[in-house]
Simulated assay, not measured.
Amino acid sequence: MNIKEVARRAGVSISTVSRVINGTANVRPEVKQRVEAVIQETGYRPNSLAKELQRNKTNTIGVLLSAPALDLTSLGSTINAISDVLKKSGYSIMFANSRFDPEEELDFFKLFQEKRVDGILYFAVDFTEEHYKLLKNYPIPIVMIGQEDAVLDFPCVVHNNYHAAKHATEYLISQGHRRIGFIGAPLMDRAAGAERRRGYEAAMLLNQLHLEPEAMAEGDFSIESGGKAMESILERCSVPPTALFVATDFMAMGAMHHLLERGLRIPEDVSIVGFDDVNMAHVYNPPLTTIRSDNREVGTRAADLLLEILHKKEPEVKKYVANYELMVRKSVKKIM
């Protein structure tokens, strides 16, 4: 069944059938009723993509991630929230994951443009000169998740990385710790890398505590890199720090595993605080004290913000900072 056959059966032109389907012009009620009766009788379903392209819409949102496969578990509630909001509004989703590859990320932006997605939710990490060239005049609305950028000035939803990291470090200080090490994420990630490190350093300096370069290391978000960072700290420190703030839970778990392999106990010998509250954090041994950011709220706010833009509304707020809380469990010992 095609539109030509529907027009023949209804005794009208093809353009009249198209107008009834798309609701683009007035059609006499009796003619509209006749066309709709034939459509219902024959079960004709117009090509939804062609129909939406006529309206310059595809009802599709691109979601661009930049995360190792393992980290997708920590993004689950954000992605589920995005899916829930967009589904209610009649949108489908096209997912892509560049896995920290800037060239692949740029290719996905070009693909989204070719596929004519209506908008993009962009889990940003780093911006190269090529990003700025491509995105400065990009024709599709973008809402960034996890990062903000003054040059691009896209609406964004971000985690409270600086204050949450500062809070986590201050909690360790409140438990009597003075030699507190740090395992950070790559500094190219301004949020998880630079801002969480800045929060840690601010808490230490405000409490007049010494930053020990030999007790600081960097990982790449993975569990394995957390173990290697911990190994590096232990090799460089004649006496291990009594506590560590680690910028992600997965790296914290890697650090904990290495400490246990070296015969050090948690929290009796070394206390640890992570960041993210991934699904495994509360069942790890010992359960990990960590920062929980409201990831579902992040997804909901980002999707709502994009929908506002698509509906031609001026967003009330261009930047939204998500709430967080410190989840106190069993990986920190009070030593005073």
Rank of each mutant, 00 (worst) to 15 (best):
A255R: 12
R265E: 12
A25S: 13
Q33Y: 03
A255C: 01
F250K: 07
R197W: 15
D107H: 14
M1F: 09
D269T: 06
F112A: 00
V17A: 06
T24Q: 08
L53V: 08
F108K: 03
S83A: 06
F154V: 04
G274P: 02
D294A: 12
Q40L: 03
N2D: 13
V63T: 10
D220H: 10
Y122Q: 09
Y91D: 15
Q147D: 01
S83D: 12
K318R: 15
T16L: 04
A150E: 13
R190Y: 13
E170N: 11
R9D: 09
R8S: 10
K330Q: 14
S98T: 11
Y44H: 10
V317Y: 01
A168F: 07
N47S: 10
A202W: 02
N59Y: 13
G23A: 05
K110S: 11
S92N: 12
L264H: 07
D101I: 01
E130Q: 12
V31Q: 02
M251A: 13
L205Y: 00
F95A: 08
Y171V: 05
M280W: 14
I291D: 05
F112C: 04
E41R: 12
T300M: 13
E212D: 12
M216L: 07
N207P: 05
N56H: 10
Q208E: 14
A25Q: 12
E30W: 06
T242K: 02
E212R: 05
R178Q: 15
G119E: 02
V332P: 01
Q33T: 05
